[in-house]
Simulated assay, not measured.
Amino acid sequence: MGLLRARGLVQAISALVAIGFLCGAIAVKRSMKGSALHQQGEELMYFPSGRFLKQASLGHENTFADVVWLRAIQYYGEHRLTDRKYDMVGHIFDVMTTLDPQFIHAYAFGALVLAEDAGKPIDGLKLLRKGMSHNPDDWYLAFETGFIYYIVLRDSENAGRYFSLSSKLPGAPEFTSRFAAFVEERAGHTETALRLWEESARMTENARIKEMAEQKVEELRRKLEEERRARESIRKGG
């Protein structure tokens, strides 16, 4: 038992040393040239692949994934406040989910950023499919796939298919089947989109996804009010 505990301690220390080495290497790259954002882009280009980090982690993949998650949130926040360019998001979340294939929130948040902020919905769907391949019974990933098909790509057929799939998976809440029905009935896009974002804001435990969803809810409510006023104006004019 003592030997096993000693080995576990050595592995933990090795993992922390490796993380420190990675962060140190990144810091050196950042200090070499360019503006802050250019440095950040350069930094993330040197992020090792998830497969490399998985081998280097010595059994501490989740610890490494948590480090990458914190860096991803920082990267997203900085670019959201400045140039709104997210060139490295796909790479970062691929690394993270290779380290921890069961990191459900990483798949969901990464896919939303890719689809909504980076303008790369196909890459977002690719990340979600990776998640579903590792977590085939997770209803949330199937639901998020339908969400992107409907909200971003306006593909009702595929959206309905994934909403329906989500509703049949273990633990799926009632609203998943409700949205499958909405899409199949071709409900008004804005109204359905509003309901989807409202449900996302309500059900998520992830602060970043909740913030994004609440912003979309406000935008869509304003849009619906503008549409209502326009219809009322036309009616009165007629």
Rank of each mutant, 00 (worst) to 15 (best):
M1I: 11
L3Q: 13
R7G: 03
L9T: 08
L9N: 08
A12G: 07
I13F: 00
A15P: 08
A18C: 07
A18L: 05
G20H: 02
F21R: 11
F21D: 10
C23P: 00
S31F: 10
S31L: 13
G34V: 11
E42I: 09
Y46F: 14
F47N: 00
G50M: 12
G50A: 10
S57V: 05
G59M: 06
H60N: 13
H60Y: 14
V68S: 00
R71H: 02
R71W: 02
A72Q: 01
Q74R: 12
Y75W: 11
Y76V: 13
L81T: 05
T82P: 01
R84C: 14
R84L: 09
D87A: 14
M88C: 15
G90V: 03
H91A: 04
F93T: 05
D94H: 15
T97E: 10
L99K: 03
D100C: 11
D100H: 09
Q102V: 10
A108H: 06
A108L: 14
A108M: 09
G110Y: 01
V113I: 15
A115S: 15
A115V: 12
A118N: 07
A118E: 05
G124C: 11
L125Y: 14
K126P: 05
R129F: 08
K130C: 08
M132A: 06
S133L: 09
P136Y: 07
F143P: 00
T145F: 01
I151T: 01
V152L: 03
V152R: 06
L153P: 05
D155K: 11
S156P: 12
E157H: 06
R161I: 06
R161C: 04
F163A: 08
L169Y: 13
L169D: 09
G171M: 09
A172W: 01
F175R: 09
R178E: 14
F179Y: 15
F182T: 02
V183G: 06
A187T: 13
L196S: 05
L196Y: 02
L196F: 11
E199I: 06
R202V: 02
R202S: 14
T204W: 02
R208D: 14
Q215C: 07
V217P: 07
E219A: 12
L220V: 07
L220D: 05
R221T: 05
L224Q: 08
L224D: 01
E226S: 08
E226L: 11
E227G: 02
R231P: 01
E232P: 00
K236Q: 13
G237M: 11
